[in-house]
Amino acid sequence: MKFLVLACLVAFAAAASARAQRGGYTEIYDTIDLDEILSNRRLLVPYLQCVLGEGKCTPPGKELKSHIKEALETQCGKCSPAQVKGTRRVISHLINHEADYWNKLTAKYDPNGQFTKKYENELRTQV
């Protein structure tokens, strides 16, 4: 039994070390309820203001703000699968329901449209 516990700890440590070496983003906020945030502008707008530098940031907002440019440039290369899925949901929501904020974000983080055009073409809802 002690061997099994030790083996599990070693495996966990190895996995954590591999993730750190790969330089992935923290997964601590991967369980945030995006449905709740996206469906409630009172929750959504402060996140948007944070990443735009127009308002205060919560800890998850600070984390997002610190990585948003790099994540766009690398197509979320350091993101976990949950982060990729969540990022696509948020971007889709912004493109289709918060165009003003989407335009402000692209102007700030991708003024030449080099990285965001792909998302716009792929995630825009056909009306």
Rank of each mutant, 00 (worst) to 15 (best):
residue 32 I to K: 00
residue 82 A to G: 06
residue 65 K to R: 15
residue 74 T to Q: 02
residue 104 K to R: 15
residue 98 E to A: 09
residue 11 A to T: 12
residue 45 V to Y: 08
residue 13 A to D: 03
residue 42 R to F: 14
residue 95 I to R: 08
residue 38 L to G: 08
residue 76 C to I: 11
residue 69 K to E: 00
residue 13 A to T: 12
residue 44 L to F: 05
residue 47 Y to S: 07
residue 101 Y to L: 04
residue 99 A to D: 13
residue 101 Y to F: 10
residue 11 A to Q: 11
residue 60 P to F: 04
residue 84 V to E: 10
residue 53 G to L: 09
residue 59 P to V: 05
residue 21 Q to T: 13
residue 93 H to Q: 03
residue 79 C to P: 00
residue 87 T to F: 01
residue 22 R to Q: 14
residue 65 K to A: 11
residue 103 N to G: 12
residue 40 N to D: 15
residue 80 S to C: 09
residue 44 L to N: 09
residue 29 Y to T: 03
residue 32 I to M: 11
residue 51 V to H: 01
residue 31 T to W: 08
residue 74 T to D: 05
residue 33 D to L: 12
residue 80 S to L: 12
residue 20 A to W: 14
residue 100 D to Q: 13
residue 21 Q to V: 15
residue 38 L to M: 14
residue 49 Q to W: 01
residue 56 K to M: 15
residue 84 V to F: 03
residue 65 K to C: 07
residue 48 L to S: 10
residue 50 C to Q: 04
residue 21 Q to E: 14
residue 75 Q to S: 13
residue 27 E to R: 11
residue 81 P to S: 10
residue 61 G to T: 02
residue 69 K to F: 08
residue 8 C to F: 11
residue 106 T to H: 05
residue 89 R to P: 06
residue 84 V to N: 06
residue 76 C to R: 08
residue 91 I to Y: 01
residue 17 S to V: 14
residue 105 L to K: 05
residue 41 R to K: 13
residue 93 H to T: 06
residue 35 D to C: 11
residue 27 E to F: 00
residue 93 H to I: 03
residue 33 D to V: 07
residue 86 G to T: 04
residue 49 Q to T: 09
residue 20 A to V: 13
residue 83 Q to M: 11
residue 87 T to S: 11
residue 90 V to N: 00
residue 102 W to K: 04
residue 94 L to P: 01
residue 23 G to K: 04
residue 98 E to S: 10
residue 41 R to W: 02
residue 44 L to I: 03
residue 96 N to S: 13
residue 72 L to W: 13
residue 95 I to N: 03
residue 70 E to G: 00
residue 85 K to I: 05
residue 63 E to K: 09
residue 54 E to A: 12
residue 96 N to H: 08
residue 79 C to A: 08
residue 85 K to L: 06
residue 43 L to E: 09
residue 70 E to C: 06
residue 24 G to Q: 03
residue 13 A to K: 09
residue 68 I to K: 10
residue 43 L to A: 02
residue 60 P to K: 05
residue 87 T to L: 05
residue 9 L to P: 08
residue 52 L to T: 05
residue 8 C to R: 04
residue 63 E to L: 08
residue 70 E to I: 03
residue 53 G to K: 07
residue 41 R to N: 12
residue 91 I to K: 06
residue 31 T to L: 00
residue 91 I to P: 01
residue 42 R to E: 14
residue 41 R to I: 01
residue 62 K to C: 15
residue 56 K to C: 11
residue 55 G to P: 04
residue 82 A to H: 06
residue 9 L to R: 07
residue 100 D to P: 00
residue 44 L to D: 01
residue 27 E to D: 15
residue 99 A to L: 15
residue 65 K to E: 07
residue 39 S to N: 14
residue 69 K to N: 10
residue 57 C to W: 04
residue 45 V to N: 02
residue 102 W to I: 09
residue 50 C to R: 02
residue 71 A to G: 05
residue 88 R to F: 03
residue 30 D to I: 01
residue 46 P to N: 12
residue 97 H to D: 15
residue 84 V to T: 07
residue 27 E to Q: 14
residue 79 C to T: 01
residue 82 A to N: 10
residue 31 T to D: 15
residue 25 Y to I: 02
residue 60 P to L: 10
residue 106 T to M: 06
residue 25 Y to V: 08
residue 13 A to E: 11
residue 39 S to D: 13
residue 99 A to E: 15
residue 101 Y to P: 01
